[in-house]
Write a protein that binds this DNA or RNA. Sequence first.
DNA 1: CTTGACCTTACTCTTACAGTAAGGTTTATC
DNA 2: GATAAACCTTACTGTAAGAGTAAGGTCAAG
Lengths: 128, 128
Amino acid sequence: MKINQLSKLTNVLSKTIRYYEDVGLLPKAARNSNGYREYSSSDVDNLIFIRRCRELQIPLGKIKILIQVQADSSSSCSEVDLLIEQQLENVRNTITELSLLEKTLNTLAKSCTNDIVGECEILKNLKQ
Amino acid sequence: MKINQLSKLTNVLSKTIRYYEDVGLLPKAARNSNGYREYSSSDVDNLIFIRRCRELQIPLGKIKILIQVQADSSSSCSEVDLLIEQQLENVRNTITELSLLEKTLNTLAKSCTNDIVGECEILKNLKQ
DNA sequence: CTTGACCTTACTCTTACAGTAAGGTTTATC
DNA sequence: GATAAACCTTACTGTAAGAGTAAGGTCAAG
């Protein structure tokens, strides 16, 4: 199939598919006589895997590692476990930070009862 | 004062101070005879304001607006209120998304009881 | 007089793509 | 057969908010 069909099957833009190939996340695509990229069903699987990882906010560099690890199906999957664990940690840390931020912003948003910039409590707070 | 002292007073790297000047967030600094930037206490205030906004994850473009609004102290501060409100909304939305993500990752992390990549439930899940 | 600390500009790198240009190919329509 | 629409190609630029590095000028202390 051609790139546009792969795109539709996986819900990943053609542009992005080419980009993944460029950065070595996907193998160099086969080309047919006119130079167009030619894909098979295994490419669909690879791309869905990548998309799922991206949905989990796993960065491309780590997805690369996950792909490499799968190459040897008899190796230990401790690296996979660790990577997901770290990703979970990252997400939790970010949530904690953002929750603090939300508190601060919420307090700030409620602080201003005036209507004139010169008296704005928000701006005063920001100058703390 | 010179840039390094401003940096220490505000806890903003010299590099970053120059960058803020480049992108028009700070006015062009005065220069003394040797070409070094020369700052005053009002620069300290401006920079602290910017830093506070950045701590609240407000993007530079919006900080620019906040600075402009302050120029006319008699104008309405509704724009300020709105901007903070939107920022609060952004943060809340991000928290919601990340919480869903955390759930998924947590389930995923617990799913694998094997030790071999070929049997790894995490990887199987990612291929869903 | 030289060393180290400080200052300058300018260029590259980061992440994960999106946008655009400029051009070649294929397919459908008239 | 001509042409237009839809698709493909590479290559370059832009995004956010700086951080890193290079190459060089300046200033105070020993």
